[in-house]
């Protein structure tokens, strides 16, 4: 018997590494060492969420915020100066998270860094164990608390996506200079099907996929018919064959906040009917979660969808609750540091 146990331990060390933060072995046909790619390629319905980087230099704060999602999400997006506000950097948040084995998604916005900085950061992120990147254009500087800053926008999200593919697949910088060890990142981008030009958003998706996006996370979806139409067209065009689509959902706290978000957060579309429902609810907080749960369940049924991205700014403590109640994980428990023995993809 001891022999068998020893053998298992040896296999586990080979499989998982000795430390949960170590990269997993890369599987055939995979592009990254990451768990997020494994979950999607295994055909599971994936759940991702967003961590709000702290206004602090405290790594424990990052880990405390991440632990709220334990057992409910497959990957955690670390936002990159979201809303053009200054916070701890996405790269640093990701590096802290990889130390304990989380699967963070490095959000890269084009607003603050040029092509030299971005390529350097990408290598650095991969060296620190980050396995996923999300390419974004970024909010304009005027949306944030440093409107006097110089907007960079050397790239847009599509040029950025293509650049990351060049770094990874061709193992070279844009200049042509060789990279000794390419950054093995699973590369994604975002889409907003809910704002004009609605009829051309699917063409924008096609461009992002052509540029090299392997997964897509969308802006908040509160308008299911628009998403259904968008997904139907994406499926017709064959866009979901080589790309995983994870529509975004949100947890609204009140009708007032919903209205404020619609008016002040770029790209957020919330139909009047949703705001009315929040207004009429006796317990708006609970109603907000209920709306989120219903949306997740309905989104899961849409052909071509591979998961959901739950964005719950200042409502992070409810992410686990909505994911659990929605049942979208089908009883699966995603990896968390407390279940380190089950590092590979899923726990049933």
């Amino acid at each position: 018997m001891p022999d068998i146990i020893d053998k298992n331990v040896v296999q586990d060390v080979e499989r998982l590494g000795t430390n949960p933060g170590d990269p997993l072995p890369m599987l055939d046909g995979h592009v990254s060492h990451g768990r997020f790619e494994r979950v999607l390629k295994d055909g599971h319905f994936a759940v991702t969420t967003e961590i709000a980087p702290p206004d602090s230099a405290d790594p424990d704060e990052v880990l405390a915020r991440a632990s709220l999602f334990d057992g409910y999400v497959d990957a955690i997006n670390a936002t990159d100066g979201s809303g053009a506000h200054c916070h701890m950097s996405s790269l640093a948040v990701c590096a802290i998270l990889t130390r304990v084995g989380y699967s963070p998604i490095l959000q890269i916005s084009c607003r603050d860094r040029n092509r030299i900085a971005i390529q350097g950061d990408t290598l650095g992120a991969a060296a620190l164990g980050v396995c996923n990147a999300l390419c974004l254009s970024g909010d304009g500087v005027g949306a944030g608390d440093h409107p006097e800053a110089k907007p960079v926008f050397d790239f847009d999200s599509i040029s950025l996506t293509r650049t990351l593919r060049i770094l990874r697949d061709e193992s070279r910088f844009l200049s042509g200079r060789k990279i000794d060890l390419a950054p093995k990142l699973f590369i994604g981008s975002s889409i907003n099907p809910f704002v004009p030009p609605v009829e051309n958003r699917v063409n924008q998706l096609a461009k992002k996929i052509e540029a090299g996006a392997e997964y897509i996370q969308s802006q908040y979806c509160f308008d299911l018919p628009v998403l259904k139409d968008f997904m139907a067209r994406a499926v017709d065009m064959g866009l979901t064959e080589n790309c995983y689509i994870l529509p975004g959902v949100g947890v609204l706290p009140s009708a007032r906040t919903a209205k404020w978000m619609r008016d002040n957060v770029p790209g957020v579309h919330i139909p009047d009917s949703v705001i009315k429902r929040m207004k009429q609810a006796d317990k708006p907080l609970r109603e907000g979660r209920k709306i989120c749960i219903e949306l997740m369940q309905q989104i899961k049924e849409i052909p071509g969808v591979s998961g959901v991205h739950v964005m719950a700014y200042r409502q992070e403590k409810w992410v686990g609750d909505v994911v659990k109640k929605s049942g979208v994980l089908d009883g699966r428990t995603p990896w968390s540091p407390n279940s380190a023995e089950t590092t590979i993809g899923t726990v049933n």
Binding site: C110, R111, S137, G138, D139, G140, P151, F153, D156, S157, I158, S159, S190, I191, N192, V195, P196, P197, Q204, K207, A211, Q219, P266, G267, H269
Partner: peptide
């Protein structure tokens, strides 16, 4: 485009375009 996006639009377009 204030973001000089070469493959647009971005996701921030207002409902009225």
């Amino acid at each position: 485009c204030p973001k000089t996006i070469r493959n647009g639009p971005c996701g921030g377009v207002r409902p009225n375009g």
